[in-house]
Write a protein that binds this DNA or RNA. Structure first.
Lengths: 144, 144
DNA sequence: ATTTTTGCAAATCATTTGCATATAT
DNA sequence: ATATATGCAAATGATTTGCAAAAAT
């Protein structure tokens, strides 16, 4: 669970201003269980008359992604989405049915990345693992 | 190395027509060492007066991606790109400097995916691993 | 007071679509 | 002959930008 104050604190620490629109965006993000698109935040900002503009949403998400509070996600559909991250989790499992996602720790992937580096001669800087499937709730015939 | 004829054969086998524009797209793809964007193919089609239209390029890439001849890639920058695939390789290492990419086999990732499934309770359907780094040539101060 | 951030509107960029024509089978 | 694929141009959708006004430091 990512809290609004966590997000604001990260902004603070990085020397960015604590503005009302950013607080609102942080609230919208903290409410989300799973992944979300920029557009869905915009829709909600409109429906609830929060007055946060499209540009601000995109700018905030970009900033938060830089700061590692959210992570850009590319769904298998090609859609761009985001998820809130707890700092510890490097990767995400995303439910294809309800969109909920769970952060996961590194289960030995680093070693594999290293092995692939050796095998190919590449110096590996980053890797990105995205897993897609069905979450426990949806398997049980739950949500959506 | 992916050959033009490989690509055309896959189209054939799947019951798609061998058309001149598709042959051209196949040639453009086969020439590429690494990843490429739809747009870069379009540019080249224009520069070399190959007469293949934007829409055709997008439609061909979509088709080839469905058939597994190319794979959609999401670069860390968020750009959408493609790489030609040899069938065996599930994942790609992409050079951040020159864009060249190499297919890699599964080095035990399946086991990790399974472990993550167990740990989270998700039924995992797909995973996607993308690795980014510097290729041997660029490390040697080579290309770009 | 100064710098950063915002909203607005317009611009840009990538991708998709409708439709009449051309081409492969 | 028939179904599929293409080019064109226009539509769509997402994201970005310039700029003057507003808010945070």
């Amino acid at each position: 669970m990512v809290e609004v104050t966590d997000i604001l604190d990260v902004l603070d620490r990085a020397g960015h201003r604590r503005t009302a629109p950013r607080r609102t965006v942080a609230e919208l993000i903290a409410e989300r269980e799973g992944h979300f698109t920029a557009d869905s935040l915009l829709d909600e900002s409109r429906e609830r008359h929060l007055g946060v503009d499209r540009a601000t949403i995109f700018r905030s998400l970009e900033l938060l992604a830089e700061l590692g509070v959210v992570e850009r996600l590319d769904l298998p559909s090609g859609e761009h989405a985001f998820v809130a991250c707890e700092a510890r989790h490097h990767h995400h499992v995303v439910c294809s049915s309800c969109g909920r996602s769970t952060g996961v720790a590194d289960h030995g992937l680093d070693r594999i990345a290293a092995a692939i580096g050796t095998a190919t001669g590449y110096r590996i800087d980053t890797h990105r693992l995205e897993l897609f499937g069905t979450c426990p709730a949806c398997q049980a015939g739950g949500p959506l």
